[in-house]
Design a protein around this nucleic acid. Structure first.
Lengths: 342, 342
DNA sequence: ATGAAAGCGCTAACAA
DNA sequence: TTGTTAGCGCTTTCAT
């Protein structure tokens, strides 16, 4: 082994020092050439670039983060990655972040605020420049850590009463109310709302609250069931609808907390020759791809999943760039979409 | 502002030194207490824990990574996050990594190997301890960087002829062949294969190659169409099937490269009163949730998306723990699932 | 426009 | 079992 093996605990990677030597400049000049090319002379820039290419240098962002106290990492915590609706939000974030040179550290809380708290603690150790959380319900320790850390935060997918910092979402309660009102206007009277255990999913409970408000305002009797065991699976919707119609023969509409359940119910109705919307109308939530495709097409609430991600990323980037973020709480809205199923 | 403001460029975070002071020990003892509790005395451990709690200390993993040359980050690059099938793989990885204390840096190549190369370069700068790539087709510079970097790599979702390091997947070609053979055994003769532009998606082109092999082996004429513009959207399947039947009236089966297309086609057939499988049989690929739910239920190929993620993560973790990874190329298999649509 | 020195917060190596 | 020292690779600050 020849030469400069070194005695320390070096990693063997090509370092900036090597590039500097090849280019005949100091390391700080290399650093500047790479990060702010306009701060070095054209000639120096050329030489540094050549040296980088010749040596195969890859900047060590870990060392850079430590020295600069900026990581160019944005952390995001979602309840589930496999739930396509959150995947859309993550992809929206990714689109914005990539162009800005930021990278995405992703965590999955499994709809648990205890797990979210653990992720927050672990992620903060990475010194992310910003963080996106899903929802507005968090543990007190998590809120505390985040405020302490003082980094920009965006809560998403709902509108917080007590924001940690910024937010990008829509009112799940208003959306639940709007769909219910739409069903009432269409002439339905005995409308049920179906979701999974609501304490586990605050957004579903908000939709449910909106449903109850609309029913009461119309002097109708709410029938809100929160007993679906696996509310992210289509088959749960199929299982739910049959039992429900048996128990509540007067029912004329079923509003599900998401399109997967609604589609499952729709399919089960076809299997059993239950006319939709003739015998029972079915409405979903989310405007998943399946909603427009289904037969009959599914009445649902369209929500801006991807835009939430983009907005969240832009708000974080704006704050990091020192730009004012106004308003700090952004309502991205929703849209009731009437299709054939209700 | 009292006291120890300090002159340097400190971040204001609580440091290990503060914890050490409170506990009356040195920083390295704190470090050991946190990382290998069994290397310090019970009494010391107790005091350190108390000091951590009292100070609200959050370890700085950036500094730790720099010093230890281990980041506890695994990078993963997928073609799309919103495509649920890759989301399942990512979620599978996440499950394994979380328990091992690793975190996931996620990138989205948009099915582009140029974009993948850019992500590889950017990610390597973070010094991930390992990396997962989707597919076996990569740019030469990307392969080169990865080999240079010398970290454990898992390629996924196919079986490489020329592995970079390790792999976890299945043979897309065999799977395409197996489904085609199954259709032939079921009596279909004029079978088409439909996919998006194959040069963009190597896995689809492998399935197609398997289809062609099976057709030729049975002395049948392959009809492979790779002209679906948006092969990840259901509606593309709906658009494709009608035109195809008009152009190829003799057709008795259509094998789509994924279940989304197949489901779109199924739905379109129902709208047009085209009997499935009576007039035309339909088969998909992937065994998405929609496949079992559809009416008629969709014949498809089940692939172990989540297991690929878990296996990839475990292989990386095993290697990082110094355990032998044998075999380094893992075939997780697939299963042809016959349902009502074909 | 460029450079020298110092230090970001932690852990490896060695010592006691 | 615990501590001392040095250094991971970069960017900051301050100087030229």
């Amino acid at each position: 082994m020849g030469g400069k093996a070194g005695k320390g605990r070096r990693t063997g990677r090509v370092r900036m020092e090597e590039v500097a030597r090849l280019a005949g400049v100091s390391t700080i000049t290399v650093s500047r050439a790479l990060r702010s090319p306009d701060k070095v002379s054209a000639e120096t820039l050329r030489q540094v670039k050549a040296a980088v290419a010749a040596s195969g240098y890859v900047p060590d962002l870990v060392a850079g983060s430590l020295a600069s106290n900026r990581s160019r990492i944005i952390a995001a915590i979602v309840p589930s990655i496999a739930a396509s609706i959150f995947a859309d939000t993550v992809e929206g974030m990714g689109e914005e972040l990539r162009d800005a040179g930021y990278q995405l550290l992703l965590g999955n809380s499994g709809y648990s605020i205890a797990e979210e708290e653990a992720l927050v603690a672990a992620f903060l150790g990475r010194r992310p420049d910003g963080m996106m959380l899903t929802g507005i319900v968090h543990s007190e320790p998590a809120r505390e850590m985040l405020k302490q850390a003082g980094l920009p935060i965006v809560e998403s997918w709902d509108l917080p009463d007590r924001p940690i910092d910024m937010a990008a979402g829509f009112s799940n309660r208003s959306a639940g109310r709007a769909m219910t009102e739409s069903l009432i206007r269409a002439g339905y009277r005995r409308i049920a709302f179906l979701s999974g255990a609501i304490e586990r999913e605050h957004r579903a409970s908000e939709r449910r609250a909106g449903y109850i408000e609309a029913m009461q305002a119309a002097k109708l009797v709410p029938l809100a069931l929160a007993d679906i065991a696996r509310p992210t699976e289509m088959r749960s919707g199929a299982e739910a609808i049959a039992g429900l119609l048996a128990r509540e023969p007067e029912l004329d509409a079923a509003f599900f907390t998401n399109d997967l359940l609604a589609f499952g119910a729709l399919t089960e109705c076809r299997r059993r020759n239950i006319a939709v919307p003739g015998r029972v109308a079915i409405a979903g939530f989310g405007d998943y791809e399946i909603a427009a495709m289904a037969e009959p097409a599914l009445t649902t609430v369209a929500i801006p999943a991807r835009d939430i991600g983009r907005a969240a990323a832009r708000m974080l980037l704006d704050r990091l760039a020192g730009r004012a973020v106004e308003p700090a709480i952004r309502d991205l809205g929703f849209r009731v979409i009437r299709r054939a199923s209700a």
